[in-house]
């Protein structure tokens, strides 16, 4: 087994007095793609939002247990969530480029606002990030256009470029293609396979074919519990749990 970069131990999270995630242990290996699948309301999104401490930004949210990044617990008041989020980037369900910013500024805003001013550096980062997100050729002549002027699929790749620009080691993707058409979806999937050379990817998806196509490992969640976690090929062909089998064959969920 290769190096584990991110790990959760007995992670519990929820809102008010409702546990959405009920004590989950998972390990994510370096430079792999892990898919999290499960029916709506199974805690996938809450779980993934705990990994970069975004969960706590919602009023009434709580969490307990451990999240280990390179063996170091990143939960708790002593750890600055801002520093964690630089190392663990996130792409959301709906493409959400910053409305008032140009394509160029959307990509480099993370660096700019943390004090990088040198325009040669910014230019280079913008180009490499956009290339890494497979968007460079489509936008290189209109970097000053507003980010929101792009199509949905392009916007999502812009959001990926924006996240890559701050060089995270882990990339979280919360249903990144659920708002996109099949062609844009295919592009993002291709990109995920490319990107795992440089980052570790955790992707939440509703789409089981997508999980089967792009992930190395798959975790199946049900009502806040981890039901099964295995190599993707094995989980989809020979699930050990009956609930997993029923879900992947479309008999519930």
């Amino acid at each position: 087994m290769s190096e584990v970069i991110l790990e959760t131990k007995k992670l519990v999270a929820g809102f008010g007095d409702l546990d959405a995630v009920k004590g989950i242990d998972l390990r994510f290996e370096k430079n792999s793609v892990t898919a999290i699948i499960g029916p709506s309301g199974c805690g996938k999104s809450t779980y993934i939002r705990c990994l970069n401490r975004l969960h706590e930004e919602v009023p009434g949210a709580y969490s307990s247990g451990e999240v280990l990044l390179n063996g170091e617990n990143i939960q708790g008041l002593r750890v600055d969530p801002v520093a964690i989020r630089r190392r663990i980037g996130m792409v959301f369900q709906k493409p959400n480029p910053f409305p008032s910013l140009s394509i160029f500024d959307n990509v480099c805003v993370g660096l700019k606002l943390s004090g990088v001013r040198k325009s040669s550096v910014l230019k280079e980062v913008v180009e490499t990030s956009l290339r890494a997100a497979a968007l460079w050729d489509e936008v290189k002549d209109k970097l000053d256009a507003p980010g929101v002027s792009l199509s949905g699929g392009q916007q999502q790749r812009l959001c990926i470029a924006r996240t890559l620009a701050v060089e995270p080691t882990v990339l979280l993707m919360d249903e990144p293609t659920s708002a996109l058409d099949p062609i844009s979806t295919a592009k993002i999937e291709e990109l995920v396979t490319d990107l795992k050379k440089r980052v570790t990817i955790v992707i939440v998806t509703h789409n089981m074919q997508q999980a089967a196509r792009i992930s190395d490992r798959t975790a199946f969640f049900l009502l806040g519990d981890l039901i099964e976690f295995d190599d993707t090929s094995r989980l989809f062909t020979a699930p050990k749990q009956e609930q997993t089998e029923r879900y992947i064959t479309g008999r519930f969920g």
Partner: peptide, 24 residues
Amino acid sequence: HIREAGLALGLPRWKVVLQIVLRG
């Protein structure tokens, strides 16, 4: 989700508010 996008980039909240949300 615009605020969350800013926070997810590892920016402190006040910067997200002043430079991204307010600017918008």
